[in-house]
Nucleic acid binder design. Structure first.
Length: 257
DNA sequence: ATGCCTAGCTCCGCTAGA
């Protein structure tokens, strides 16, 4: 079992993550927005649950991690060979149990049309180039994280209202499709091809979670060797209802051994 | 047009998130 969760500060959500590990016991948990400096991860909190932590962070924002229950090694962080300090807080690749697990936090990109928006689009295209440089579509690989893109109309609560808004513009959705076309499948859609109303993020405001007004921004993308072994994929809404929650819920993928 | 959350960081309000 593999899971990914944007925790919106690991310092604020340390207890939530511990509780989650102890309840679900995933073999790997990818985290985004740890908002911790490199080396500031509370490793002993996770080793108490039987997990080893890999972390690529920065001051104040960003930060990605991979928590694993089996032996593992870091493969790379950021885009190897490219000078981009911010990316080093947004991409972390780990090998564990014969599997490549990558935790990614794609830039938000707001406002639409800004330099930051173009950086987001570029980031998605560079992710594809990274995969094609380092791996093959036959590598058992899971690219997990917060992509800040809702791929299809079924992935937002009101497609008309949100059309052209950040995370649901044509150019972001096209860049996401190009990433998939390298050889990845959206695990949730393999199991629930058409169902609308499955979201991973809900605004803290307006009672959005209660009304299920959200977007599906967090994804587990898998190569064919893993797609063939996928047993189930779902959004774990429970932690979004806990006290002082992250605004994102975990996505979970279960594989046949 | 703006506030309505939340967290971090540096101050006692600002930025960023999506």
């Amino acid at each position: 079992m593999l899971a990914t969760w944007n925790v919106n500060s690991l310092k604020a959500r340390e207890d939530h993550v511990r509780r989650y590990l102890s309840r679900r016991k995933p073999s790997a948990l990818c985290l985004q927005e740890t908002k911790l400096r490199d080396g500031a991860l509370p490793e002993e909190a996770f080793s108490a649950e039987g997990y080893r932590a890999f972390h690529a962070g920065g001051p104040g924002r960003n930060g990605v991690a991979v928590l694993v229950s089996q032996p593992a090694r870091e493969i790379f962080r950021g885009f190897p060979g490219e000078e981009d300090p911010q990316a080093k807080e947004r991409v972390l690749a780990v090998e564990t149990a014969g599997l490549v697990v990558i935790s990614v936090y794609v830039p938000n990109g707001s406002p639409v049309g800004s330099d930051y928006y173009l950086y987001k689009l570029e980031f998605l295209y560079r992710l594809r180039e990274l995969l094609s440089r380092e791996f093959s579509p036959e590598t058992p690989l899971a690219l997990c994280g917060d992509f800040n893109v809702a791929p299809q109309e079924a992935d937002v609560y009101d497609p008309e209202l949100l059309s052209g808004q950040i995370c649901f513009t044509e150019r972001e959705r096209a860049a996401f499709e190009v990433l998939l076309s390298w050889g990845l499948s959206d695990a949730l859609r393999l199991k629930h091809p058409d169902r609308a109303g499955i979201f991973t993020w809900w605004d803290y405001q307006f009672g959005a979670f209660r009304a299920n007004r959200g977007m599906r921004l967090d994804h587990i993308l898998v190569t064919r060797p893993l797609a063939e072994r996928l047993r189930d994929c779902f959004v774990d809404r429970e932690p979004r209802g806990w006290k002082k929650p992250s605004d994102h819920a975990p996505v979970v993928a279960v594989f046949n051994l």
